[in-house]
Amino acid sequence: MTDPAHLSPPPGARAYPLRTARGGFAVVDMPVAPGVEHKGTALLLPGFTGSKEDFRLMQGPLAERGYRTVAVDGRGQFESDGPADDESAYTQPELARDVLAQAEAVGTPVHLLGHSLGGQIARAAVLFDHSPFVSLTLMASGPAQISVSQQQRVKLLRDALAVMNMTEVWEAIQAMGPPEDVGGPARGLGGPELLRRRWLGNKPAQLMATARQLCTEPDRVAELAAVPLPFHVLSGARDDTWPVPLLDDMAARLGAHRTVVEGAEHSPNADQPLPTARAIADFWDRVPR
């Protein structure tokens, strides 16, 4: 039996379709906690096979620190619509323009945070136009393509999507073993029914296009370093998608604030949400308003 709480936004938050100049996007919008001074607004972008629910455990603590957070399903991700078969809708420039439209609809200026793939899309948005943003946080999101071992996993997924429908691929993922071993879409916040619903909500073309991006992304750190924004590179103490020393080096090249969250791996927002939220709010507090 599924726990209904796993399908609901966190207490005090509102789930709705955010209307933008580029269409609607499903969001979970958490206002600042009652009685707390409003310090700013943040847009939160999830990673590959992820969704807005990945930030569920962070949104309350950030609200207590004075930050409204809007977690977004990107185009073709979970509850945001998009074409099922047209990969051109999911090129990185298109997804970056979506982020700029989301920021405008939420109300600029905003802090921008992206997890994993979401970090690379956030970076592309900032490189298009940094003016809507007051800071950029890259959470477990590296300078270029993912590690060779993760490229192999992503290739397996793309090969499966080429010959099976979404339900068949989900059943194959489930047959591979327990979620903690399989990872990817089988692992995340919420019960198994939410994870299944999330997987089936993803558009195959979005998964195919963004999987390719993760395996071919060039190093754009020098370009980003030239942008006049405060940067924050946050990761777990272990990460097999982008090794931690690579993230350390990226932070140094960006002149970024660096946080390593102990006890966390590739998803600090889920593994250690309270210290992760604290580190993010501490960084945002230092950004001039």
Score class of each variant (00 low, 15 high):
residue 150 Q to I: 02
residue 151 Q to M: 12
residue 152 Q to C: 00
residue 153 R to T: 01
residue 154 V to P: 00
residue 155 K to P: 00
residue 155 K to F: 01
residue 157 L to F: 03
residue 158 R to D: 04
residue 159 D to P: 01
residue 159 D to Y: 03
residue 159 D to K: 02
residue 160 A to C: 05
residue 160 A to N: 06
residue 161 L to D: 05
residue 161 L to K: 04
residue 162 A to H: 10
residue 165 N to A: 06
residue 167 T to F: 00
residue 169 V to H: 09
residue 173 I to E: 03
residue 173 I to G: 00
residue 174 Q to F: 01
residue 177 G to M: 13
residue 181 D to Y: 11
residue 182 V to Q: 06
residue 186 A to R: 09
residue 188 G to C: 07
residue 189 L to N: 06
residue 189 L to T: 10
residue 190 G to H: 00
residue 191 G to M: 08
residue 192 P to S: 10
residue 192 P to A: 11
residue 192 P to K: 10
residue 192 P to G: 05
residue 193 E to C: 06
residue 195 L to R: 15
residue 196 R to S: 03
residue 197 R to G: 09
residue 199 W to C: 06
residue 199 W to Y: 10
residue 202 N to R: 04
residue 202 N to T: 02
residue 202 N to V: 01
residue 204 P to E: 06
residue 205 A to F: 00
residue 206 Q to W: 01
residue 207 L to K: 02
residue 207 L to R: 02
residue 208 M to R: 12
residue 210 T to A: 02
residue 211 A to G: 13
residue 213 Q to P: 00
residue 217 E to T: 09
residue 219 D to A: 09
residue 220 R to V: 13
residue 222 A to T: 12
residue 224 L to M: 14
residue 224 L to E: 08
residue 225 A to P: 08
residue 226 A to P: 09
residue 226 A to G: 11
residue 226 A to Q: 14
residue 228 P to C: 08
residue 228 P to Q: 09
residue 228 P to R: 12
residue 230 P to W: 07
residue 232 H to C: 13
residue 233 V to M: 08
residue 233 V to T: 12
residue 235 S to F: 15
residue 235 S to W: 15
residue 235 S to N: 15
residue 238 R to N: 11
residue 244 V to E: 15
residue 245 P to H: 14
residue 246 L to E: 14
residue 248 D to C: 12
residue 248 D to A: 15
residue 249 D to S: 14
residue 250 M to Q: 15
residue 251 A to V: 12
residue 253 R to C: 10
residue 254 L to C: 07
residue 254 L to I: 13
residue 256 A to I: 12
residue 256 A to F: 11
residue 257 H to F: 08
residue 260 V to T: 15
residue 261 V to S: 03
residue 262 E to C: 03
residue 263 G to Q: 01
residue 264 A to S: 08
residue 265 E to H: 15
residue 267 S to M: 12
residue 267 S to P: 02
residue 268 P to G: 09
residue 268 P to N: 09
residue 269 N to I: 05
residue 269 N to F: 06
residue 270 A to Y: 01
residue 271 D to P: 08
residue 272 Q to G: 04
residue 275 P to Y: 01
residue 275 P to S: 01
residue 276 T to Y: 06
residue 276 T to F: 03
residue 278 R to C: 02
residue 278 R to Y: 00
residue 280 I to H: 00
residue 281 A to T: 12
residue 281 A to S: 14
